[in-house]
């Protein structure tokens, strides 16, 4: 065992806003509630089941890992709860129970705990969990197939999948106001645009997430999609369609803003967010997957340590003849 030095501080980002991690996480969960409630309202009891299972197993995995690695139980900072909740929001309501359990294991243990727990994770844990599930069991994230048993009173097609397979004419099937309210086929917590925006604005006002990241992410989406749309409106969908479908808003407000895997300086935050929006649209328009939000966020998580080096020089530092 190496000697514990009391005054060593880690390299993780630090925000000073006077509140505790516990308080921050509780607020994030509260902010996510409107979107979750809308999802439960829309998809019924199975959605509630997925969210509950996701939160509880995420906490169980963290407790188990803490126990095995003989470290203090960190459940009461609610971090695992937040990961579980975000993960649950990214699932379709019909996902099998065992997939949820594997997802939370990957997110909490492989995504965060093996890197040393809260503050040490290089990626947003919830995104890791969801991505690995999506890569493994493609069909569970094929919303057209998984939500077949539902009888919706709106276009029962996953917007982004429809765009990918049927071309841009399919966007005519969707009413923008429906998409904003959340009358669309998708993941539990990702359908309600209004709910996510409300939660996101609350978090920004309270200072738990940084507006720079969310705003630049959305700007990245709009600008990139706008450019594509301008070049060939017959081939690429409009920016607003991209903004309110798939995981875009969830990514902008809840996933990209994960505290330990996003930058802390102003300029890097803008680059980080804009890159995320850019990559999301590139993957959607050019790549093979219908939605690129997960991969885009993992990519910007990866470049985060690098771009976070762009910061103002300390006064007098690096000047030879001062």
């Amino acid at each position: 065992m190496h000697k514990q030095n009391k005054f060593t501080v880690s390299h993780a980002p630090f925000w000073h806003d006077g509140s505790s991690i516990k308080c921050m996480n509780l607020n994030i969960m509260a902010a996510a509630l409107p979107a979750v409630l809308f999802g439960i309202f829309q998809f019924g009891m199975p959605a509630l089941g997925v969210i509950c299972l996701s939160i509880s197993t995420a906490m169980a995995w963290e407790a188990l890992f803490n126990f095995i690695s003989k470290r203090p139980i960190t459940l009461n900072d609610y971090n695992a709860g937040v990961i579980g909740m975000l993960l649950g929001m990214m699932f379709p309501a019909t996902i099998p129970w065992w997939a949820v359990i594997i997802g939370t294991f990957v997110a909490v243990v492989v995504g965060q705990q093996v890197f040393g727990g809260i503050g040490g994770n290089p990626f947003s844990p919830a995104v890791i969990g969801a991505t690995i599930l999506m890569v493994s069991w493609h069909t569970f994230f094929d919303f057209d197939a998984t939500l077949l048993s539902y009888d919706f009173n709106f276009t029962a097609l996953a917007p982004l999948a429809a765009l990918k397979h049927q071309g841009v004419s399919a966007t005519g099937l969707f009413n923008l106001s429906d998409l904003v309210i959340g009358k669309e086929v998708g993941a539990i917590g990702a359908v309600s645009g209004i709910g996510i925006i409300l939660g996101g604005i609350y978090l920004i006002l309270r200072g738990f997430i940084r507006w720079e990241i969310s705003v630049s992410y959305i700007a990245g989406i709009l600008v990139t999609a706008g450019l594509f749309n301008m070049v060939d409106p017959g081939k690429y969908a409009e920016p607003m369609f991209h903004l309110f479908t798939g995981y875009t808003l969830l990514g902008a407000f809840f996933l990209a803003t994960d505290s330990s895997s996003s930058p802390v300086h102003t300029i890097p935050m803008f680059i980080y967010g804009a890159m995320g929006g850019l990559m999301t649209i590139l993957i959607r328009n050019i790549g093979a997957y219908p939605d690129g939000t997960f991969f885009a966020i993992l990519l910007i998580n990866l470049i985060n340590p690098l771009i976070d080096n762009i910061r103002p020089k300390a006064l007098g530092k690096g000047v030879n003849n001062a």
Partner: peptide, 22 residues
Amino acid sequence: FQPFTFMVEAPGAFVCLGLLLC
């Protein structure tokens, strides 16, 4: 059984190797 396809993809190899090393 629904195969955990991630494991036979390239990133699965890294994760798996890391866990075995551990």
